[in-house]
Amino acid sequence: MTPPDHPIRFLLVDDLEENLLALASLLKRDGLDFHTAKSGEEALELMLVHDYALALLDVQMPGMDGFELAEIMRANDRSRHIPIIFVTASTAGVSRRFRGYEAGAVDFIQKPIEADVLRSKANVFFDLYDQRRQIVAQRDELAAQRDELSALTEALQSAHRQKNRFLAVLGHELRNPIAALAAGVQLLEKREGTDAAHKIRTGMDRSLKHVTRLIEDLLDIARIEQGKISLKQERIHLQEVLAFAVETAQPAVEAGRHSLRLSITSEPIWLKADPARVAQIIGNLLG
């Protein structure tokens, strides 16, 4: 379909050049693009590459006449929708008119042509064609908007799902360090002033830093919606991170009346990694 801002194409078919010029002159108006053909064969070639709002066909032409051309047009998917008006110099009897309408004509124009009648009839088809183009353009625009809205809705739904998963995981992981902090507070009350107090405070400080990191994750809404994990890599001692993760999970282990035994080399293992993420991995495995 031709875009609405393009001219409306109109096909004139007559074997006489002077008739083509006269018809084009009678129907001339802004926004019309006249295509002319002097034979049925030439007209068919034009219809293979162009869409037309109306075809004005001379009935009496050498070789393929107007009726034969109309019948071929109606048999072709590309041209069957084109309205046809026949132009004839002879008196169109009932049988002749019947053949014309049977071939797909919407009307007959008798020569000599009355200019106002021809313009009035042709303008109806030009306006209908233009309205149809506008409707198709609006439909395509609405379809594009619908596709954009659908994509946006899917993106929002995906972000919402990612956020829910992210929050669920972090919410679960906050329990262990908070439980470790609570246990540390209870131990401090019992062992304040002893050598063990310093060790307890050190463990609580590690737990507090871990909780702070997880809360930062919760507050980073943009990253949550994208489902991305931030990494703060540094050189870490794996045994130390493992000890912290086990210490953090210990209250849950004891609450479940489980026992946990570790077997790990005494040789230091150094990694370039994010200590909080490694602790999360170990904590999730223990959980």
Results as ranks from 00 to 15, higher is better:
R257F: 15
G63W: 09
S79A: 11
E68A: 07
N176T: 15
P7Q: 02
V185D: 10
A276V: 03
A249E: 13
N284I: 10
S266Y: 06
L48D: 09
D30K: 11
V117G: 03
D58Q: 05
Q145D: 12
A243E: 13
H210K: 02
N19R: 02
R146S: 09
L238I: 06
A159N: 07
A137K: 03
I200K: 01
S259M: 06
A273V: 04
A197T: 01
G100H: 00
L187Q: 08
A37T: 03
A43H: 04
Q233F: 10
D274A: 09
I82D: 00
E247C: 08
R161G: 08
E18N: 09
F98G: 02
L286S: 02
A22R: 10
V59P: 00
A252R: 10
L12T: 01
R161D: 07
F108Q: 00
Q162V: 02
I236N: 01
P177L: 00
A53T: 05
E254Y: 03
A92E: 06
R78C: 11
I269L: 14
H198G: 13
E247W: 08
T88C: 04
G40I: 03
E216Q: 12
A245H: 13
T202E: 09
I281K: 08
L187N: 01
M73L: 13
A115K: 07
R80G: 07
A105G: 00
I200T: 05
